[in-house]
Simulated assay, not measured.
Amino acid sequence: MLWTASIEGGTLSNLERRLWRNKDLIDMAIDTDGNKVLHVVVGRGNNYFVKRILSFIVDKDLPTMTNGSRGTALHIAASVGNTKAACLLIKKNRGLLEIRDTEG
């Protein structure tokens, strides 16, 4: 996948460079579960990446960035206990608190 090497290798500069060239990539699924890059970095607990990726996302677009089970990055943060990412996400858009995934 396009993002996997950048995320796993920790090469933030490569990831950011790709996003600057094509901001539409931020909303592309990068795995078979439909997760976006934001879902993955939140799940891995890399909150520095989370902050940087959030800088590429318009606040109002954040709730529409869901995976295959309609889960947002906030759902991922809650499921893995990443409270720092949860705070960053809620600060960006409190509307995330109202979104239900397929499990309710």
Rank of each mutant, 00 (worst) to 15 (best):
R21G: 05
T32V: 03
L25M: 13
N14E: 07
V58N: 08
T4M: 12
V40M: 02
A78E: 04
G34Y: 07
K23S: 14
F49H: 04
R52Q: 10
A86L: 02
V40Y: 00
F56I: 00
W3E: 14
V42A: 02
K91I: 06
M1A: 12
S6E: 08
M28S: 15
T64V: 07
M65I: 02
V58E: 08
G45S: 01
G43R: 05
M1C: 13
L2I: 14
G43L: 03
S79C: 07
N46A: 06
T83K: 09
K23D: 10
H75F: 01
A85M: 02
N93V: 03
P63V: 03
Y48Q: 10
G71F: 08
M28V: 10
E8F: 13
S13Q: 11
G95T: 00
N93S: 07
T32A: 05
N35F: 00
K36L: 11
I30H: 00
L2V: 13
L89H: 02
S6F: 14
D101V: 07
R21C: 06
T4D: 15
G71W: 09
L12E: 03
M65A: 02
A78I: 03
K60V: 13
I30Y: 01
V42M: 01
E98M: 09
P63R: 05
H39A: 01
D24T: 15
K51R: 14
G104C: 08
G104Y: 11
N22H: 02
T66Y: 08
V50Y: 09
R44K: 10
